[in-house]
Amino acid sequence: MKLKLKIWRQENVDTKGGFTNYEIDDITPDMSFLEMLDVLNQRLINENIDPISFDHDCREGICGSCSLFINGRAHGPDKGITTCQLHMRKFKDGDSIVVEPFRAKSFPIIKDLVVDRSAFDRIQHSGGYISINTSGNTQDANTTPIRKEDADNAFDAATCIGCGACVATCKNASAMLYVSAKVSQFSYLPQGQVEAKERVLNMVKQMDEEGFGNCTNTGACEVECPKGISIKNIAKMNREFYKAKI
């Protein structure tokens, strides 16, 4: 395959950045999008040009490191996947592809396509945990019966990998899907009740302080989320929030 790439290059957080065009051939349809960038980077290294920085780690859709806004979509044109799971067969020979970093005021660009998503970590630290009894009389988890539906909802919410595609894609750069997944994951379960109040209040407070936008329920986040986190979690978080406030 032969492709025309238009890729965002930026030296660091303080520089302006802009697009650079690259032409690339000998790409096979079986390559993943990141492998295609590897091929390009190898060429740049051979030409003594600074290779393009982009985030990646597991390359199997579980860590949430890879990002990229590809042709106007977070994680590119396919549904329910991360960029490392995107294959070049989703593109046609001769296509032009625009690659940008995830853009949000709260995700400053570190270099090229790498953005700083530590705002998510700070939200998580502010309340995304449960207290565990480690005093020696720990109960077996199976002795606490939990409705199947609640267990399923909690588990579904827990599949969020913190990739930030929801923020990147939302027209308001809102982090509500991420935060609601992290809140719901605990709030459906009895173990999550101990810190239920502080959790939702602190996490929402941290989310606001980080400067994410306000949700307007467009639903774009759940469409782009690689893990299919449902927007229903946002309504659940809202309920938890009101309960904690009243």
């Binding site: 697009f19 106007g72 853009r103 949000a104 005021k105 809102s174 400067g211 936008g213």
Partner: peptide, 19 residues
């Protein structure tokens, strides 16, 4: 506020694909 939360906007943004 919401527009400011984005900061610099996307060059290509396929908003119609998901909302």
């Amino acid at each position: 506020i919401n527009r400011k939360s984005r900061g610099r906007g996307y060059t290509r943004y396929a908003g119609g694909q998901n909302a």
